[in-house]
Nucleic acid binder design. Structure first.
Lengths: 408, 408
DNA sequence: TCCCCTTTCGTAACTTTATTAAGTATTGTG
DNA sequence: CACAATACTTAATAAAGTTACGAAAGGGGA
């Protein structure tokens, strides 16, 4: 069946959680036979599963009695783990097996301190892999910090994890699990995760604060993408008057001010002492409020974010990460500064909210997107692997000889 | 025929200029019958025309002799004017009739000083309309400054042309020409025009300097668009340390520094005199070089542009407008500052170039896009007009009852 | 000049995809 | 137990694209 409709159906089901074929057809504006055929196909592939159990039908809020034959409810398969999810963090690496249908929060099954070399890292992964159930996974999904070429599967730059730049991360992982590997840039995973939990949010800029500062953009329900692997690099926008050296090689990047390290450094500079721990700084800030050095930092941050909003034409900002740990006055200051700098605020309302990180949900969304219903042949995710799992699993369903011209 | 293929063919022909059906089929990767059918359809609609004249075949640079039956060359219709183009400028309004196939530079047939009210403006237009040949135009294309909702056809905000905010510009124009009216935000027209003349440029940020500062983005050959009408508003990004009041109501917008007026103001402030004319300032700058006040302004501009590049993942900047009047040292300073602030410059090359404005070409591109091969039913361009020209001209070619689900 | 070669372009038949229409299945209600 | 309402399936149809093939149009050599 047509790729586009298959994608649309799967995305919709991901948002709805549970739905019947008729629900899907209605909400997608396609005919019932089409939805039915696609659903059947995906059921056979093991992407979907049918819920036969006597459901209490939680999704009937109206007092109206439900007439007619009840629909056979579908949802993304939750019984068989299909993916291995991997978070390659600067300080910690986390591993989990995931089903297609995840709706809960991040919940990692295995963790270890990220070692300083590729060999040690693969070694630790190997140990974990041997303890995992020997299922036939469809792929490994890796959340990677830094500048990542998602499609090519390469890490271009990672100031805090330099060894990832030199190695072929995909091949490394494939030595452990011989299945397709999908690298997902960290902030992109977070944006996809947020979108999964807030399907009604169709346009937003997600800004994540942590060891660095990164952003990711969703426009019309679609992750903004580009030929260049660089995208959403808010952290490396220069700040006028700032001269701190950044890991990227430039001077004055925003990241040097508003990363956890940058904030601690500024705090120490303002109070003449050594850099405190994050927790101690939070405590002190709770008492002293938004001090001048912090206000300056937040203003610089707001200018960069407001600039992004003005250029992109987006009115929703989602903030994740360390900044939401700080006293509420900090986010309040930042929000009001962003509104001041955003031209849309003169006509309408700018929404700014904080949210937890939903990394696994985002990884699964990326995995489904790249492995289960790939958009086209442009996707070399199945590099070095005999066959892409979902597509070739079913015989007589080979890819067409020629690419669909409408997609070119 | 499928909208997408029709669009693709027309866009390609726009880029190629002249091509045979076979050329188009080959370069689009579609089959010859399909290309042939679409071409025939568009010929009947009067969108294309066939060149029968003994062509000297300018597009055969290779020494290879041309074998086989020569193709019947097609191009966009250049014999019948289909559009009325209108440039609503702050100081001047320009009018011209245009054919579908324009490749030359802006060349306005009529001009008049933009009056201060809607009534006077329509009156002047009426006078010009009566002098134009009484052809059956397919639409009026209007280049509008300010913040414009292209699709809804409304001007939301225009600091230098306030009367346009209150009136329904489309209805106003339709009183003169009773055909569909397409409003195109100025910078978007310029970006489309640049793209028309540089088909190989698939990703770029066009920044236009003039009375204000605006930008427009092309990603993967497509004008970046969004639900919000605001987009590319570089001029209203705040600059840290700048406190000048802006026409938009905020303080410290970039526009207050780097618009023609802002530059003159800074020049006067630096030299303690009255504001000179633009030409005199250019002369003086040619002698004195990039003075500190100008360097500061350019640095602020570069930060905003570099920020946009980092966020958008674009590596090409096209600068149009007043800044290219200034001594070359100015653009040199700006370019190097942009490179310094752009993260992509650490991996690859950032291209920065100046270009003239190609407004009419952009307007025609927008007109074709909106009126000749509309993407879907979402486009209410034909507001208040009995029938869209290109689509309903041909009987038996009504729009399908249901929208293509693949496009939803 | 005739014939062969190459390329263009149009027509016919087939494939894919999604649609409408009609039929069957499963429930609650009177 | 008929009846209404909804869900799902099957069959026929339409649209848009494909491959396959043949006619048209030019150049070059005998």
């Amino acid at each position: 069946m047509g790729r586009l409709n298959r994608r649309a159906l799967l995305t919709r089901l991901q948002h709805l959680g549970v739905a019947s074929r008729a629900d899907l057809a209605k909400s997608l504006g396609m005919s019932q036979p089409t939805a039915g055929k696609i659903a059947e196909e995906l059921l056979e592939l093991g992407v979907l599963e049918e819920i036969d159990g006597a459901e209490p039908t939680p999704a009937s809020p109206k007092g109206r009695v439900k007439l007619g034959r009840p629909g056979r409810l579908l949802r993304l398969n939750r019984t068989v783990p299909r993916f291995v999810a991997l978070q390659l963090g600067v300080s910690e690496t986390c591993v989990s097996t995931l089903c297609l249908g995840v709706s809960f929060s991040d919940n990692w099954q295995h963790r270890f301190k990220t070692p300083g070399s590729a060999e040690l890292w693969t070694h630790r992964l190997q140990a974990i892999a041997s303890r995992l159930p020997p299922a036939a996974y469809w792929g490994v999904l890796v959340s990677v910090p830094g500048i990542v070429d998602d499609l090519a599967g390469r890490v271009l730059f990672s100031p805090n994890l330099h060894w990832t730049e030199k190695v072929d991360l995909c091949r490394l992982v494939q030595e452990v699990w011989a299945v397709p590997v999908v690298l997902v840039q960290e902030e992109r995973a977070l944006a996809l995760g947020y979108q999964h939990l807030h399907p009604q949010a169709r346009d937003f800029l997600l800004v994540d604060f942590g060891e660095g500062v990164g952003a990711s953009l969703v426009v019309s329900g679609q992750l903004y993408d580009n030929l260049l692997p660089i995208c959403g690099e808010l952290g490396h926008v220069p700040v006028l008057g700032n001269e701190r050296p950044c890991g990227c090689g430039a001077l004055g990047c925003l990241e040097t001010l508003v990363s956890t390290r940058g904030l601690l450094q500024s705090f120490a500079a303002a109070h003449g002492g050594l850099a405190p721990t994050w927790e101690i700084m939070i405590e002190k800030l709770a008492i002293r409020g938004v001090e001048p050095w912090l206000a300056t930092t937040l203003d610089a941050t707001s200018v960069v974010i407001a600039g992004a909003l003005n250029v992109l034409g987006v009115r929703t900002v989602v903030v994740t990460g360390s900044l939401s740990d700080l006293p509420t006055a900090v986010m309040a200051h930042l929000s009001s500064a962003i509104r001041k700098g955003s031209i849309y605020a003169r006509f309408g309302q700018i929404d700014i909210e904080t949210a937890p990180r939903h990394r696994t949900a985002g990884l699964v969304a990326a995995g489904i997107d790249r492995l289960v219903v790939p958009m086209s042949n442009r996707d070399p995710a199945a590099r070095g692997v005999p066959s892409s799992p979902a597509c070739d699993r079913h015989p007589g369903h080979s890819t067409p000889k020629r690419s669909v011209p409408a997609n070119s």
